[in-house]
């Protein structure tokens, strides 16, 4: 199934070659091994889920991808080249955007400004242009505003455009955070529990948005999620982690019938 060249999913979407590859990643915090020798790949255009019980190391894995944590061993390959050690903002400039498990929006700014920050990598005017405003800075502002308005339309948050983020309810904040990540037009979008704490309706909305993003923009998505129903419906391939080790990797159906995975989730009888 997972070969170098890509594959065709059950619903007929063509998945391209490898976009990102994690090779034998090991991450330690002092004596604690958060991740032990994990390898997996993410292919262009697919929705890749990382699941596992609490404390399995899923978020740590995402933090390794986005450059927050530097693994002690192993290599991260992106777009066919080994990635040197990078600061998180350099990773962002490479085209990787993410959302956070507990929302990390800029509470003091309006929704529009928050989403506009997602466009930072496309803003090239320097501080003197900014100070003069007329000319380059204003032109750039308008161009990027147009791009941002498309995202705002897409996620149906037009009515709250100028509302300060601090006033929004939880579900909408999650959506604004997705908008900010999308505004960067990333090649790879990392979602850390996009549906945590949502009710069924909000979850359905969010699932629809995730599928639409993948479908319309062709964005590769890697997501962590606890809701098994959602994961199995959304994702093309799933990595299963437990206690920092990889215990399963494959399509949702393969993973579902994997004995190790069942043991990890349901527990093993010790008699």
């Amino acid at each position: 199934m997972s070969n170098e060249e890509g594959y065709v999913t059950a619903d007929g979407r063509k998945i391209g070659g490898t976009l990102m590859e994690m090779k034998n990643i090991t991450l330690r915090f002092g004596g604690v091994k958060a991740i032990t020798d994990i390898s997996f790949d993410i292919k262009e255009g697919e929705i890749r889920a990382i699941i596992g019980p609490n404390g399995a190391g899923k978020s740590s894995m995402l933090n390794v991808i986005s450059g927050f944590y530097v693994p002690q061993e192993g290599e991260v390959w992106f777009k066919g080249a080994k990635r040197p050690q990078m600061r998180p903002y350099q990773v962002a400039q490479q085209g990787i955007a993410r959302t956070f498990q507990n929302i990390a929006l800029f509470e003091g700014m309006s929704v529009l400004d928050n989403v506009m920050t997602g466009r930072l990598n496309y803003m090239k005017s320097n501080i003197l242009h900014q100070a003069m405003w007329k000319g380059k800075a204003e032109k750039e502002e308008v161009e990027n505003r147009e791009a941002v308005e498309k995202i705002i339309d897409f996620l149906e948050i037009q009515s709250i455009r100028k509302t300060p983020v601090a006033r929004l309810p939880y579900g909408l904040k999650k959506r604004v955070e997705l908008a900010r990540a999308l505004a960067a037009e990333p090649m790879l979008l990392l979602l850390d529990e996009p549906m945590a704490g949502m009710n069924v309706e909000e979850k359905e909305d969010m699932s629809r948005f995730i599928l639409d993003v993948n479908d319309e923009f062709g964005t590769t998505i890697a997501l962590i999620e606890h809701d098994m129903g959602v994961v199995m419906d959304l994702s093309d391939r799933v990595v299963v982690m437990d206690y920092g080790k990889k215990i399963g990797d494959g399509t949702p159906d393969e993973v579902r019938s994997n004995q190790d995975v069942i043991d990890a989730y349901l527990g093993v009888s010790h008699d």
């Binding site: 986005s66 927050f68 600061r87 998180p88 903002y89 990773v91 962002a92 400039q93 955007a97 993410r98 956070f100 990390a104 929006l105 800029f106 509470e107 003091g108 700014m109 400004d113 506009m116 920050t117 997602g118 930072l120 990598n121 803003m123 005017s125 501080i127 900014q130 405003w133 800075a137 750039e140 502002e141 900010r180 990540a181 960067a184």
Partner: peptide
């Protein structure tokens, strides 16, 4: 403009600011 948003991003949440570039 952009510069102000960068500053405010750092003010409101520096980790998230770094992750968006």
């Amino acid at each position: 403009g952009t510069q102000g948003r960068k500053w405010m991003a750092i003010r409101d949440m520096d980790i998230a600011a770094e992750i968006i570039g």
